[in-house]
Computed example of a mutant assay.
Amino acid sequence: MPILREESFNWYLFLQGNVYKQITGYVALFFVVLEMVLTLRKRGRGWKIKIVLPGSMQFWRVLHIFMGVALVAVTAVHTVGVRGLNFNAAFLWVFFGVSLSALVGVVAETGVVESSKRYFKLLPFIGGQGVQKGALIRNLRAVWLSTHIFLVSAFIVMLGFHIFLAYYYQ
């Protein structure tokens, strides 16, 4: 039993150590940079980045989603499930907001696009034909995408501050 306690304590110290945090932090930063490149690829209509990174919009969108899921996993590994205190707690909540807004966007758009319906009623008990599929997608995108972009912007600023604090207090 003492050997198990000692080994688990050593493992705990490793998870709380600087080397572990740096490795997982750099992996998370790598995923963030890849996400930003994918976003540039998606949004940059006439940029030369499309020549360097060919592919369809659907491919880049799916890759962006999977990289985001991988970033959530790496963040969970980096934080070891701990919320943190003060700034780190707020930073983690903003990251969860980014993830939630992305999830809402993916579910909403996929549900509407892949549906066989042409019209959607916003409130089922009100009569009428409803909203066309294209108009509904535009309206959904106006809400969730602006929220997602705002939260990502806040996340990027907080990420820079987090990196500064991590090295300042090291």
Rank of each mutant, 00 (worst) to 15 (best):
4 L>D: 11
62 V>Y: 07
116 S>Y: 10
81 G>Q: 01
88 N>M: 13
28 A>K: 00
63 L>I: 10
47 W>S: 13
2 P>V: 10
144 W>R: 00
84 G>D: 04
9 F>T: 13
136 L>Y: 03
52 V>L: 15
38 L>W: 01
7 E>R: 07
143 V>F: 11
61 R>K: 08
32 V>K: 02
115 S>A: 08
148 H>R: 06
28 A>P: 00
167 Y>L: 11
119 Y>Q: 10
70 A>K: 03
167 Y>I: 12
101 S>C: 09
110 T>F: 12
130 G>I: 00
154 A>L: 15
99 S>P: 01
2 P>E: 12
168 Y>Q: 14
169 Y>N: 15
88 N>I: 12
140 L>C: 02
83 R>N: 08
30 F>Q: 02
140 L>G: 02
150 F>E: 05
66 F>V: 15
94 V>M: 09
122 L>N: 07
29 L>H: 03
80 V>Q: 13
140 L>V: 01
143 V>N: 01
112 V>P: 05
147 T>G: 11
160 G>V: 05
3 I>L: 10
129 Q>G: 02
49 I>S: 06
61 R>S: 14
37 V>G: 02
8 S>K: 14
103 L>T: 14
84 G>Y: 03
95 F>P: 03
108 A>C: 04
165 L>T: 06
132 Q>H: 13
52 V>S: 10
137 I>W: 02
107 V>F: 07
121 K>W: 02
61 R>D: 10
154 A>W: 12
90 A>F: 13
118 R>Y: 05
